[in-house]
């Protein structure tokens, strides 16, 4: 999940477009954003429009419940897609095939300043993220709100979208975010007695305490590496034949 949203960090498509003679605009999403701005006022902290693709709105923590009502009633986004959260801190446990670099264990936690948020930025480490869509169109709004680093809490959405209840349960158990007003914050995917919040980046992966990622020993050498001159020679021959 965090990885999906991290891809938003990719170079924004607006940059090359700015150099282009005509600037691509998206009137429909601008209009949708205007509805939120009209009803929420200053509570719209930041926004981002990717023309023809998407609309991201970051609202103030206190306006989170209102934002849901505005989305449903004023903006017409009646379909609740999902609600989740993102921990923007880089993982100290490395990723995938780089993970053999994990030694020593446990790795030092990254500095708080290392957290880099995606579109619309973030003042805090953890952000709540929700998506609502306008049925019958391709319009969809990603709503975001910061939650406090030490005592993460935010208003519930269940009074607007009843289906948010399970999503909030998941965000509660995975990130430890308290959804004020949700009466049923119980574990949903994890065993009842589970302790900790596993999608927070400081959650220890106990298997990695025992041994570092073992898969690196199984990985074949990458083509183009130092020790596969045979492969390069073969590739050169193949190119020669093809040419």
């Amino acid at each position: 999940m965090a990885d999906d949203t991290a891809t938003e960090d990719a170079p924004a498509p607006t940059e090359p477009e700015a150099e282009a003679p005509e600037v691509v605009t998206d009137d429909r999403r601008e209009a949708l954003l205007a509805v939120f701005a009209e009803h929420l006022g200053d509570a719209v902290v930041e926004h981002h429009i990717r023309p023809g693709q998407g609309l991201w709105i970051r609202v103030a923590n206190e306006a989170w419940a209102t934002a849901a009502e505005v989305a449903r009633d004023a903006a017409g986004c009646k379909w609740f897609d999902f609600l989740s959260a993102v921990d923007w801190l880089p993982s100290p446990f490395g990723r995938y095939e780089d993970s053999y670099l994990d030694k020593p264990f446990p790795p030092p936690m990254p500095e708080r300043s290392a957290a880099v948020a995606g579109l619309t930025g973030s003042d805090t480490r953890v952000q709540v993220l929700a998506s609502v869509a306008k049925v019958g169109t391709d319009l969809r709004v990603f709503l975001k709100a910061d939650v406090d680093d030490d005592k993460p809490s935010i208003a519930t959405w269940i009074h607007t979208f009843a289906g948010a209840a399970w999503h909030e349960r998941e965000a509660w158990e995975m990130f430890g975010i308290d959804f004020v007003g949700n009466p049923d914050l119980r574990h949903i995917y994890l065993p009842t007695e589970f302790e900790g919040h596993p999608l927070r980046k400081e959650f220890p992966l106990l298997a990695r305490v025992v041994k570092p990622w073992p898969g690196i020993v199984d990985v074949e050498p990458m083509p183009g590496g130092d020790d596969d001159e045979d492969d390069e020679a073969a590739a050169a021959t193949a190119e020669g034949e093809a040419g």
Binding site: Y189, L190, G196, P198, L205, L206, A207, R208, W213, P214
Partner: peptide, 13 residues
């Protein structure tokens, strides 16, 4: 043995 989820927080190894 847990397979690809060898380091998961929720999978029985």
């Amino acid at each position: 043995c847990g397979g690809p989820y060898w380091d998961s927080y929720s999978v029985t190894k």
